[in-house]
Amino acid sequence: MAANKPTLKTVRLTTPVEPADLAQLEIGNVVYLDGTIFTGREGVFKRAVHEGHGLPAPPEVIGNVNFHCSPAAARRDDGSYDIGAVTATASFRFAAWLDQWFEMSKCKVIIGKGGMTPDVYKKSFVPNEAVYLTTVGYGTGALLGRGIKAVKDVYWMDELGIAQAMWLFEVENFGPFLVESDLAGNSLFERENAKVAAGLDKVYEGLKPAIMSRYGETDDRKEELI
């Protein structure tokens, strides 16, 4: 298939994860999960942290793996749920809530899309002994959907709706994910960004500058754009 057949190290973890589980992870490892995970995105963070409602259930119930996600799901007539595809949403938007979120939830793994900045890993993840896993693709929604064996609970459905509610899933062989940030705060995306950036000048080489500059190309808002 691919010219360079991937041979990435693969790790399978059971939740709640233990410190030793996380210590073995290196950026670029492939991870699959078994056990309980809980979702959260802007609606949950706003309600739990910003509005001060706290978590709807204690860490012993929800576990320590938090997924920045909401599923494509529908409520059946009997009150149960039909879970279709599952994928993550972009995580960088949630950085502002992170410190209080770690303190409140005690979570040790955050799964999302696109990672956070290196500053956030150093400032928030490392002191809380947490790692970041990124979904793959993005959009392995069907594979991840297969990994969800049951909906254990849904919190704040009435307040937040299907797309923002906090879901508690029982998962099996749930993945694949890639380790984006390890316990030391190293970042896979940063490493790859740097490699790509090294070649960018050559890509743009020879292209003449634009006729008109654009607002935003400079931080000086008083500068005239010509």
Binding site: A85, G137, G141, R146
Partner: peptide, 15 residues
């Protein structure tokens, strides 16, 4: 993932 979506008749991406 595309194969899983077709086999399960499941949306390929949750977004």
């Amino acid at each position: 993932n595309y194969e899983a979506a077709k086999e399960d008749r499941r949306a390929m991406c949750a977004d």
